[in-house]
Write a protein that binds this DNA or RNA. Structure first.
Length: 423
RNA sequence: GGAGAGAUGGCAGAGUGGUCGAAUGCGGUGGUCUUGAAAACCAUUGUACCGAGAGGUACCGGGGGUUCGAAUCCCUCUCUCUCCGCCA
């Protein structure tokens, strides 16, 4: 959620910058400002009515104390009008506040100046590319066939138990999952992130805090019996640790990492893009989250990209880094880098991490603040990224490392898998 | 699932209708003292909105009600705790 002060003071800038996200803010920002004016004047009026009522109430109290009952009863008569007024003003005001809130949550975050213009994934900017794309023999297989061949992942079985998009990992496939999770968590904790295990279900307030609610409800599984949501990413519970918190500036940077399964309804696409591990309803991911001061958040974003880069190097996968264009980035983000690995049998790039700076957009919803030098409360900046999402890493590992003898495991992972080949 | 108790400031914990944004203790911050520290003492110490300021308003789990006036009374929701049952 954007800050009202920013909207009021930098309306033209906001309109111009939001255009990069393909969002025409002209009307809505004008509405917001008009409503906020209304809010201020109504509040002022209400405050003065309440001040009068409070004054009279105090006087009545004194009168009763002094035994001047008639005077007190006379004073009571005065309050009737004030009471009506304050009641009506209060009703107006709560409606105004609700309307204002409803508008504010419809406005996406302002993209950073570095964000390239563009409408879709086509327009993302390739920042760098690294690693060698393996040339596989004619007989190479996509990962879903490799998974079947070595009995690593059973998609059909998941179908039976739950439905499409809920695979069952078996044997070395399951072990590989566990190895990757441990490997990622170790890399992250070595880099100073505090490991946490958050709940996998969250309430409405948490969904709102990170921006999934109210608009993106369709993305999450909703447990209606208890009005809870299955998390689509660890970002939600981990970032919400900081909801309604005022941190000390000495605590920066605050760094958390968590492994969780992620649940996404993802209604939509069909075909080869979603085959195998490419898109699932349940998948595993290790997330990194940082809370930082506004001055340092972009520095931190770079550090996080570098951190994920190192993990990908360890995995010996060819990867590239994209800077997302305005049209492709998320509603809540100010600047996002995507990390993609090359999946050699599918012959395409797969997103395995998305690292974003949300600036104060989430913090404003979360009421996550810190005390600045002047002891004033300011909104923090929040950042997060995947380090890393498992399924597409597994897809690339299986495809890129297939040999006639079996699937080779990268050196860095062997201590975690306990085997160096799947055959 | 059954029965009961409770929700107050960073924490602990008073406060059952009026001057209570809220006693007291602890903690935090600043100071005095000290070579330094501790102790002691003094002061200060919630959040948000409006206002140039003076100041005003709101907030004692959430929502609603009674009243001139509510932390305090009533209704309702949520959550927490204790005991019993069940259970990984």
């Amino acid at each position: 959620m954007l800050q009202l002060n920013y909207i009021r003071e930098q309306k033209e800038e906001a309109i111009q910058k939001l255009a990069k996200k393909g969002f025409d803010a002209t009307t809505i920002l004008a509405e917001v400002i008009a409503l906020d004016d209304k809010r201020k004047s109504t509040q002022a009026e209400l405050d003065s009515v309440l001040a009068q009522s409070n004054q009279i109430a105090k006087e009545i109290g004194m009168l009763f104390k002094n035994g001047e009952v008639e005077k007190a009863n006379a004073a009571k008569a005065q309050t009737a009008t004030l009471k009506e007024q304050s009641k009506s003003l209060q009703e107006q005001q709560s409606k105004i506040n609700q309307d204002l809130q409803d508008l504010l949550v419809q406005i996406p975050n302002i993209p950073h100046d570095l964000v390239p213009a563009g409408k879709s994934a086509e327009d993302n900017e390739v920042v760098s590319e690294e690693g060698t794309i393996p040339s596989l023999g004619e007989t190479n297989l996509p990962h879903w066939e490799l998974a079947a061949k070595y009995d690593l992942i059973d998609f059909e079985l998941g179908n039976k138990i739950t439905g499409a998009g809920f695979p069952v990992y078996k044997g070395k496939g399951a072990r590989l999952q566990r190895a990757l999770i441990n490997f990622f968590l170790d890399k992250n904790t070595d880099a100073g992130y505090l490991e946490v295990q958050p709940p996998h279900l969250v309430n409405e307030d948490s969904g709102f805090g990170t921006g999934q609610l109210p608009d993106k409800e369709g993305q999450m599984y909703h447990v209606t019996g208890d009005n809870l949501y299955l998390i689509p990413t660890a970002e939600v519970p981990v970032t919400n640790i900081f909801r309604d918190v005022i941190v000390k500036s000495e605590e920066f940077p605050i760094k958390y990492t968590a492994y969780t399964p992620c649940f996404r309804r993802e209604a939509g696409s069909y075909g080869k893009d979603v085959r195998g591990l490419n898109r699932l309803h349940q998948f595993d991911k290790v997330e990194i989250v940082q809370v930082q001061s506004p001055e340092k958040s972009y520095e931190t974003l770079d550090v996080m990209v570098k951190h994920v880069t190192e993990i990908l190097r360890d995995l010996e996968l060819p990867f590239r880094i994209l800077k997302l264009c305005g049209g492709d980035m998320s509603f809540t983000s100010a600047l996002t880098y995507d990390m993609e690995v090359y999946s050699a049998a599918q012959e395409r790039w797969l997103e395995v991490s998305s690292i974003s700076n949300f600036e104060s957009y989430q913090a404003n919803r979360l009421k996550l603040r810190y005390k600045d030098k002047n002891k004033k409360n300011q909104l923090c900046h929040t950042l997060n990224g995947s380090a890393l999402a498992l399924p597409r890493i597994v897809a690339a590992l299986l495809e890129n490392n297939q040999t006639p003898e079996g699937i080779r495991i990268p050196k860095a992972l062997v201590p975690y898998t306990g085997f160096d080949i799947i055959n």
